[in-house]
Amino acid sequence: MRNGALFAEIDAANFEGFLKQLYVMLDCKYPKFFKMDTLSKLAFMGAELLLSEISENSSEHKRTALVFSNRSSSLETDRKHQEAISSHGEQYPSPAVFVYTLPNIGVGEVAIRHKLQTENAFFVFETFEPEFLQKYTVSLLNENKCDQVLCGWVEVDGNERHGFFYVVGRNGKWKHSAATIKNFFEHD
């Protein structure tokens, strides 16, 4: 879904396949995507869907802050790395897996892709926190740290895969309140 409308219907065997098909559909041309873990791929595709609507040369695009959050941090990749380092057989720890054992790496991937040298943060909450996110986002805008904020909830752990993204600007279509954010999140 994008902006309340069905954006694409993808029939994939698993979530990785879904993200790959979306990557192909959006013609991203960014081979590093394939090296990312699932959490970073989700963050990356969410940013592609929303930031591609805003001209790359505009000040809004260049001055986009990133505020992401989730519940499980990078736990899925952490487990993968732990399995490798605790096995005594032929399994070797992978440097490419290890570099994704922090949740904010996905934010970094988005910043690199869109050449953003702006504020960014990644929060780990027990549950989605619209009140906190609303206040934090407003403070970034009020302190003129940015012209817009891309917010994202990127949850990846076990069977749970959930991406929810929105952009907050100074002249948005909807009132930026915790209630609005919560409403969109719950109806996502």
Binding site: K35, Y92, P93, S94, P95, A96, V99
Partner: peptide, 9 residues
């Protein structure tokens, strides 16, 4: 550089 580490592995 991460690819280089993977090649070493």
């Amino acid at each position: 550089s991460i690819d280089a580490l993977e090649l070493i592995v």
